[in-house]
Simulated scan of single mutants.
Amino acid sequence: MSPDAAVAVFDTVASSLVSSIRILLACGVAVAVVGYVAGGSRSATSMRNGISQLIRRESEPEVRAEVSTRREVPGPRR
C-alpha cells in the first residue's frame, strides 16, 4: 500500500470519526441542558418561574387605565 493511499484511508476514517464525535458532543450538551432545566435545583426552578412569568406577561392583553370596558355583573344571591 502506498503512503498516499494510506493517508487517504486515514483521512476518510478520521473525518467520519470527528463528525460522529461532534454529533455526540452536541447531543450530550442538549441532554445536560434539558436535565438541568427539568431538575429541582433552586436556580432551575427560579429560571422556569421567570420564563413562565415572562410568557404570561407577553400573552396578556394590554390594559388601558383611562378606558374601562369591563362591566360588573352581580352574582347570584347566597
Rank of each mutant, 00 (worst) to 15 (best):
S2Y: 05
Q53R: 15
V9A: 11
E60M: 11
V31K: 03
R64M: 05
V67G: 00
R78S: 06
P74E: 03
V31A: 14
S46V: 06
V34K: 09
S15Q: 10
F10Y: 12
G35I: 00
G75W: 04
C27V: 15
V13L: 13
A26I: 11
V63R: 06
T45N: 11
E72N: 09
S46K: 13
D11C: 13
D4E: 15
V37G: 00
I23E: 07
R22E: 15
G40V: 06
R71Y: 07
S68Y: 02
V73S: 00
I23W: 06
G28P: 01
E66A: 13
I21F: 08
R64G: 03
S16Q: 14
A65G: 07
D4P: 03
G35F: 00
R22F: 07
A26E: 06
A38E: 08
A38N: 10
P76D: 05
R22N: 14
L17M: 13
L24A: 15
V29I: 15
T45I: 14
V37L: 15
I23G: 01
S2M: 02
E60G: 02
L17P: 00
V9K: 13
P74G: 02
V7W: 11
E60H: 05
A65H: 10
E66W: 09
G35V: 00
S46Y: 07
G35Y: 01
V9N: 07
R64A: 05
R77C: 07
R22S: 12
T45C: 08
M1H: 10
T45D: 09
S41R: 07
I51M: 04
E62S: 10
A5V: 14
T45S: 13
Q53M: 10
A5L: 14
A26L: 13
Y36H: 11
A38F: 07
E58K: 14
G75K: 04
L25G: 12
R57A: 09
G50A: 01
V31R: 04
P61R: 05
V63T: 05
S41E: 04
V29Q: 03
R22H: 11
R71Q: 12
A32W: 02
S43E: 15
L17C: 10
T12K: 12
P76S: 05
V73C: 02
S2C: 05
V67Y: 08
S16L: 12
A65R: 13
G28Y: 00
S19H: 09
S16F: 06
A44N: 01
R42T: 13
C27D: 13
A26N: 06
R77G: 03
V34D: 06
G50D: 00
V37Y: 08
R48Y: 03
A44G: 02
V34G: 04
T45H: 08
V31E: 01
V31W: 08
V63C: 01
T45Y: 08
R48C: 02
V13C: 04
E72F: 15
I21R: 14
R64T: 07
T69H: 12
S2G: 11
T69F: 10
F10P: 00
T12A: 15
G35W: 00
S19R: 12
R56T: 10
V9E: 14
P61V: 06
S46G: 01
A5M: 11
